[in-house]
C-alpha cells in the first residue's frame, strides 16, 4: 500500500512537472559540417517499427501473436489494449498471482502490477538517483549496472517478500561482463 502511494505520488509529480524546455538554450546552429558542401538529406516520413521502455516487457508479457502490435501501439493506448493480456500471462507464469490478495514486494497485485507494466514507459527522475530498483528507489530510471532481470524475476516469482520460488527468482548473473565507464559514453568498449 505504501508503495502504491509512492507510485501514485510519482505519477502526480510527473503530472505537475512543467515543460521547462527552452529551445534557445540547447539548439545550436553550429552543426559540425565545416567540411561538407551541403546538408545531408533529412527529408521524408519515418514510420514506427520498434519501441522499448522498460526491459523485457514485450518479450515477457505480450503473447507471441501480439508482439508486433505492441511495438506499434503508442504508450498512452497500451494500458487499455494490453493490461488484460499481461494479467493473464503473468498469472500463467506465476500462478500464485491468481490468488485473491496475492501481491509482489512492491505491494502490487496482479491487476495493479500489470496495469503499471502495460503502459510501457520508463519513469526517470530528474532529481537524483536514477535506478530501476536499488533496494530503496523504485523505477526512477535505468542505470547500466542495474540487475533488471533479477528485479523482474523477483517481482514475478518472488512473492510478497522476495522469498518465494528462490530457484526461479534470481539468475545469479549480477553484473555486466565488462566494467562500465564513469564518463561519457559510459558503455564499455566492444569485444
Amino acid at each position: 500500500m505504501k508503495r502504491i502511494t509512492y507510485i501514485t505520488l510519482a505519477v502526480l509529480l510527473a503530472a505537475f512537472t512543467f515543460n521547462c524546455s527552452n529551445d534557445d538554450d540547447n539548439m545550436m546552429g553550429d552543426m559540425d559540417n565545416t567540411n561538407q558542401p551541403s546538408e545531408p538529406d533529412f527529408s521524408g516520413t519515418y514510420m514506427q517499427e520498434d519501441q522499448v521502455a522498460r526491459p523485457a516487457v514485450n518479450t515477457v508479457f505480450t503473447s507471441p501473436s501480439s508482439k508486433d502490435m505492441f511495438n506499434m501501439t503508442i504508450p498512452s493506448e497500451q494500458g487499455a489494449a494490453f493490461q488484460s493480456m499481461f494479467q493473464t500471462n503473468l498469472e500463467g507464469l506465476s500462478p500464485a498471482y491468481a490468488n485473491p490478495g496475492d501481491m509482489n514486494a512492491l505491494g502490487l497485485d496482479s491487476a495493479t502490477f500489470t496495469g503499471l507494466l502495460a503502459t510501457d514507459v520508463l519513469n526517470v527522475s530528474l532529481d537524483g538517483t536514477t535506478t530501476f530498483y536499488d533496494g530503496t528507489n523504485v523505477l526512477t530510471g535505468r542505470a547500466l549496472a542495474d540487475d533488471v532481470i533479477t528485479v523482474e524475476l523477483l517481482l514475478i516469482f518472488g512473492g510478497e517478500d522476495f522469498t518465494e520460488n528462490p530457484t526461479l527468482s534470481n539468475d545469479h548473473v549480477d553484473a555486466n561482463d565488462k566494467p562500465f565507464l564513469t564518463s561519457f559514453p559510459y558503455l564499455a568498449s566492444p569485444w
Partner: peptide
C-alpha cells in the same frame, strides 16, 4: 536536465522508425 523538464519525473521510451 533543464532541456527536458528540469525537475520531477519524466516518462521516456525509444522508438525506431523507417523512412517510407
Amino acid at each position: 536536465k533543464s532541456s527536458v523538464g528540469g525537475s520531477g519525473t519524466i516518462n521516456t521510451w525509444v522508438e525506431t522508425k523507417r523512412k517510407q
